[in-house]
């Protein structure tokens, strides 16, 4: 059985179910649990649900300490960029202890953060910074694009014994979707094929998955059959599914809201260039954000972002319907 939920409520449902299931799961962050009648406080009490000051280094550092001491903290960070305040804790602390202790300790925590809020949030609150974390050994990176995955990946993130950066796209917040009832887990490292096709493979993440599906629909009317793959987790990355698809289609377009050299797209392009070169009939094309600090003004913001038209044009290029240019 399933029920319909907005994306953000699906995440919430997973956290609640995991907190009910496992009383070592903690949930804390800024501007939550400030009144007695908030549902989480009511359900789980103020030992497990707590408001913090604006202190990301302490919030994330304390999550690491509590995790090492046997709990499973979920830190509510709101904006992905707020993790940058505590970059050491995220990149050089949480993922290191497992290895440095020779496997003696584990650091099971979830850093829940929204990202990509290109709705006029300008230069410091709109970034797509997931790829920054995907090359850090010990860290897992989750980026759901549907409400069902948002729920299933959060549940898996909380049960995972490693630090997980859980990135939910702010533009998807109110997008509704069917969500399975009750316990629902989506495994890490398994891409979803959102649409099957034989001519071109598109790999897209987060909010760009729906843009890619829109482009695929448009291209189908031109007789171009596009396969759309959503990796769902950037780390671990399911290169197997991507390579299998490229083997079938011979053409690859990568869509990513990040700037080009800070994108997951570039990492995937490298993997396919190395391991799928003989399958490729055309150069890989990447559709990313332009290399700019996201501008406030609406037309400028739209101009630097990937969109359906840019994806369509990229697919037309790789099938030879439009000239390939650098």
């Amino acid at each position: 059985m399933a029920h319909e939920l907005p994306f953000i409520a699906a995440i919430d449902e997973a956290i609640r179910l995991e907190m009910e299931r496992d009383d070592t799961v903690l949930y804390f962050g800024q501007n939550m649990a400030t009144t007695e009648n908030e549902p989480y406080v009511d359900a789980f009490g103020k030992d497990r649900v707590r408001v913090t000051p604006i202190s990301e280094t302490a919030e994330i550092g304390m999550a690491i300490g509590a995790a090492m001491a046997g709990f499973r903290p979920v830190v509510e960070l709101y904006m992905a960029e707020f993790m940058l305040v505590a970059m050491d804790q995220v990149i050089n602390e949480a993922p290191r202890f497992r290895a440095m202790s020779g496997g003696q300790v584990k650091v099971p925590l979830v850093l829940k953060a929204g990202f990509g809020f290109t709705a006029g949030w300008a230069g410091q609150h709109t970034g797509t910074i997931g790829a920054m974390f995907m090359g850090v050994p010990g860290l897992k990176v989750v980026m759901p694009s549907t409400a069902a995955d948002a729920k299933g990946l959060m549940a898996t993130a909380i049960r995972d014994d490693n630090p997980v950066v859980y990135l939910h796209h702010y533009l998807l917040t109110l997008e509704h979707g069917e969500v399975p009832d009750g316990e629902y887990l989506v495994p890490f490292g398994e891409a979803a094929i959102r649409r099957e096709g034989s001519d071109v493979t598109i790999v897209a993440t987060g909010w760009t998955v729906d843009r890619a599906l829109g482009a695929a629909e448009q291209l189908a009317s031109e007789g171009i059959q596009v396969e759309v793959i959503d990796p769902r987790t950037l780390a671990p990355l399911d290169t197997h599914t991507i390579l299998e698809s490229v083997d079938k289609t011979g053409r690859l377009v990568l869509v990513d809201q990040a700037t080009r050299h800070a994108s997951a797209a570039t990492v995937i392009a490298g993997e396919v260039a190395e391991h799928g070169f003989s399958s490729l009939k055309a150069p890989i094309v990447q559709v990313t954000a332009l290399d700019a600090t996201i501008p406030y003004s609406e037309p400028l913001e739209a101009w630097v972002m990937p969109n359906e038209d840019k994806i369509v044009a990229a697919v037309q290029r790789v099938v030879g319907a439009a000239p390939v240019t650098a």
């Binding site: 707020f82 305040v85 006029g120 300008a122 230069g123 410091q124 406030y296 003004s297 609406e298």
Partner: peptide
């Protein structure tokens, strides 16, 4: 978000800057 904005429409409400008046730049963090 307009062309004649103090920061040319790129910064917006959270990032006003007017160095000529001693206001060097505003972080939103």
């Amino acid at each position: 978000g307009r062309k004649d904005g103090l920061c040319k429409g790129i910064g917006g409400s959270m990032h006003l800057a007017d160095p000529s008046n001693g206001f060097l730049g505003t972080s939103g963090i």
